[in-house]
Design a protein around this nucleic acid. Structure first.
Lengths: 102, 102
DNA sequence: TTGTAATTTAAGTTGACACTTACGAAAGAA
DNA sequence: TTCTTTCGTAAGTGTCAACTTAAATTACAA
């Protein structure tokens, strides 16, 4: 999961995710948005795919990419579950303060 | 913000965040949980501090660390705001489907 | 077949960063 | 002061990942 988080933390990869968040795009068009080489983008796409953050659909010689919602939601849920104990503790403390008031 | 996300994606740093999520701990005790050298942990603490993910409190020769809730929440909100348009689009599509039913 | 377009894979380079050991700083005790 | 504790900073090293260019793959058209 940390690897997945690291995957989205790269600026280029995050920009790719923004591109394919709302629509499906072929690799070439994705690469067109960046100043770096096509292979570089291809490698970023592979990282995103390996981490289940995008889907690939092949059509003829082209490959279309789009975001994969589960993968993204996984990260959000992971962070929530990390934070939950902290919220529990806060709740616990305020409840204790309530009891002490009475 | 991406830098902040990258900061938490390191396994050691994430483990540190878990340690100081619920309680405040001195640097030495934090380092005691790991097999690497104390300076290594000190450097990780600096990265976390620079990215506003932990707070430092000095007491005599010791330094206590605890998680910084705003910094962590920032990440969650950032991801939510990234995902929001996607949800909007989904809502839009279902509403359109509703209208077409009628 | 031959060619061409879209894309990935291979191989190599470079820079960032997570470590190490050695040294320095700050605070308090003897 | 001097010693000790706690911790950070400095400097150096090795690994890894993000790039490059060149070559291979895949699908399809001429």
């Amino acid at each position: 999961m940390l690897q997945k988080i690291q995957a989205i933390s790269d600026p280029t990869r995050f920009a790719i995710l923004e591109l394919v968040r709302d629509r499906e795009l072929p690799a070439g068009e994705i690469a067109g948005h960046f100043s770096m080489s096509r292979p570089a983008i291809s490698q970023h796409l592979r990282v995103l795919k390996e981490n289940e953050l995008i889907r690939e659909r092949r059509e003829g010689t082209r490959r279309f990419y789009r975001i994969r919602s589960e993968g993204f939601r996984d990260i959000q849920k992971f962070l929530e579950s990390f934070w939950a104990p902290r919220l529990d503790k806060l709740k616990e403390l305020t409840e204790q303060a309530e009891r002490e008031k009475k």
